[in-house]
Design a protein around this nucleic acid. Structure first.
Lengths: 110, 110
DNA sequence: TTTTTATATTGCAATATTACGATATAGATT
DNA sequence: AATCTATATCGTAATATTGCAATATAAAAA
């Protein structure tokens, strides 16, 4: 017990859950919003921006990268981070479908 | 240590993180997808649909409800669940903003 | 080459999540 | 009233997440 039963759900459901889970923390939302504002930045910029230590920021960046929501390219000494559009495109597809469903049956609830 | 430092982030960031976090589990994605398909249902229907026990499903429903993604109305003996559009509207606003940002600077990355 | 700069990783403590059996609650049925 | 049906809650074990100090790594600058 304790571990998520990923085996019992579809690949699509698991993939989407990984993406939304990665966004399920205010620090990671803040990182995404910052990246949208500045386009590209290095880890140190985010450490200066957020009230978190360097290891903690590094860990959040790793999770966002693993989920496919950001990219990181080595640039000499530092690592340049930016938004990965692939991940956001997948999320968009899901929420677009939800919107279609919701518009079809407005207020049709119990 | 261990607890999320919600105090250090904006209300918007925390609110959005609560919504995305609630969707960050395949069982809860599956519940949302099922509700979109059948419009309304009771807890027992979901228990029959998912490979999870009744208490576990009940717990997931509680989290979705607390996040503002579903609603539950007492209907005699049972409880009728359905999508809460308020929560999804909030998520939509965020992702629409992201889309605008991303379109403005396509492939402008490091 | 030593030092500085920038990130990642390790190790660990605190806390949160996931899952379910057992049990409680509450309305419907007999 | 006793029973059935539907759901929630409690208690608990297993696992995952969050956060950071200490340390490792690796390229740049002195």
């Amino acid at each position: 017990m304790g571990a998520t039963k990923s085996d019992h759900f579809t690949e699509k459901q698991n993939e989407l859950a990984i993406l939304t889970k990665a966004l399920g923390h205010p620090a990671r939302i803040a990182i995404i919003e910052y990246l949208l504002k500045v386009n590209t930045c290095i880890c140190g910029d985010i450490v200066n921006e957020l009230p978190l230590s360097q290891p903690t920021v590094s860990q959040h960046l790793k999770e966002l990268k693993n989920a496919g929501l950001i990219k990181g390219n080595i640039e000499g000494n530092a690592i340049c981070y930016c938004i990965n559009e692939v991940g956001f495109e997948k999320i968009k597809v899901f929420f677009t479908q939800i919107d279609l469903h919701l518009e079809k049956r407005k207020n049709e609830c119990c």
